[in-house]
Amino acid sequence: MENLIEDLKKQIIEELNLEDLTVEEFGTDELLFGGNIGLDSIDALELIVLLEKNYGVKITSKEDGKKVFQTVRTIAEFLESNK
């Protein structure tokens, strides 16, 4: 789980061009939207693409997206439960 969380942080920083953020600073339980990370609607789409491309997992509903994309931990938990 910890390896998955670190991988996710690296991928999110790289794919979403979060150049002001490092893996060490990226809180596992920090809110991705509406908090310090400050992702926007385009980032949400990019996250959907990232999960599909890198993990073969599709987010198909807005409700699922809201639950899954709360924090890096919720994404990791979703990926673990969809292995």
């Binding site: 794919e15 979403l16 061009n17 385009i42 980032d43 789409l45 990019e46 693409v49 599909e52 491309k53």
Partner: peptide, 11 residues
């Protein structure tokens, strides 16, 4: 990417 467009580029 096999047909997956990047929203961050498309915008």
């Amino acid at each position: 990417e096999g047909g997956i467009a990047s929203p961050a580029v498309f915008v």
